[in-house]
Design a protein around this nucleic acid. Sequence first.
DNA 1: GCGTAACCTTACGCACGAGTAGGTATGCTC
DNA 2: GAGCATACCTACTCGTGCGTAAGGTTACGC
Lengths: 212, 212
Amino acid sequence: MSTGPAFKRLPRAVRQQQMLDSAVRIFSRRGYHGASMDEIAEVAGISKPMVYAYLGTKEELFVACLHREGTRMMEAIAGAAAPDLPADERLWRGLRAFFGFVGAHRDGWAVLYRQARAEHPFARELTVMRARLVEVVAGMLDHALRAGGREVADPELEVVAYALVGASESLADWLADHPEADPEKTATQMMNVAWLGAGQLLRGVTWHPPQG
Amino acid sequence: MSTGPAFKRLPRAVRQQQMLDSAVRIFSRRGYHGASMDEIAEVAGISKPMVYAYLGTKEELFVACLHREGTRMMEAIAGAAAPDLPADERLWRGLRAFFGFVGAHRDGWAVLYRQARAEHPFARELTVMRARLVEVVAGMLDHALRAGGREVADPELEVVAYALVGASESLADWLADHPEADPEKTATQMMNVAWLGAGQLLRGVTWHPPQG
DNA sequence: GCGTAACCTTACGCACGAGTAGGTATGCTC
DNA sequence: GAGCATACCTACTCGTGCGTAAGGTTACGC
């Protein structure tokens, strides 16, 4: 009598997704260096050489995680914000999609935001992606400004956009640590800070340091 | 003839600071795991056992870095913002001190913000410190609100405070990567986003999602 | 029914880096 | 100038974890 193999044979595509699921989870908990390929393989229910055969080295595996989670997030956001809507509506939909994603993929967010930023050479790549996002936000602000017949220097806008992106990330991080929180409500609160603050700037109101 | 030793004998306090300087630099560039005790010792111009004798294990060394840089930052901020000034003046001085610190201690900032957040068990400690900072900011907002005869639920304020802290950190990070940027100006821009946005909220103006 | 390709394993080589053992030189005190 | 503490070194041990070699098992085409 043969009891058969202790493992199941599955097609490559399925195993790959299992491995990526496992890797995202382990990377998010232990960090890039702290995660071991042995543990990732074990959690995926597979042996280590299979990981190497399908996803390559540890660095390549991490890049694959980054790519999958980053793509999912971008698609969620891009799919929500149609480009022909008014600026505040676009911002609102984008924020809602963003916080919705973070609430549903906490591990993916942790890998993208907490781990990748600390680790060369991934940090550089992430910085580039982030800069592109900042450009988009700055573009929205610029568009709204011109529509209001106002003009602001480019670098100024970029810095404001950086602040808004950073505020969103911070709230997303808070959300990732509070499973009971409502992503929709968090998005509304971010919108309050972003749009009312940006709205003032759009109307030409600025703050100046006191003399002395 | 004896040429004497190739190294100089220095008092413990001096060496310790050299080691911490070196450690902060290496940790900021390579991350916690990526940094090696050998390299830290080499950059400090000393041999490895000395590092262990003075600062203990790698983990203890990292904590020492965190502690020194964190303390420096807190002192810079606390020394700038007197508690009896009006809210916007306090915020302004705090922000100016904060960005001034980051501009002058880029490596320290990178260790505190980029590295420690990714690494257990330091992440937890940093989260606690950050939460305290958020409480302070929320307290300022609350104070200003009550002075205006207005009342807002506590958790609401906390989330707004998180957004402001996150926006500041994001700009600080941008500043750390742009040596040519002026910390003073960055602080002004942050103040614009924070105070005008918060100011709207203080006046009871809120944003609501469109129906549909 | 038999080759061949895909799936999967156990068991290892090897480098790197944390932490230590044991010893040497220098200055300070009486 | 003997004794002692402090500053400092070279040269190791040893665990851990990346990456691989070599081989076993199942499905599928013909």
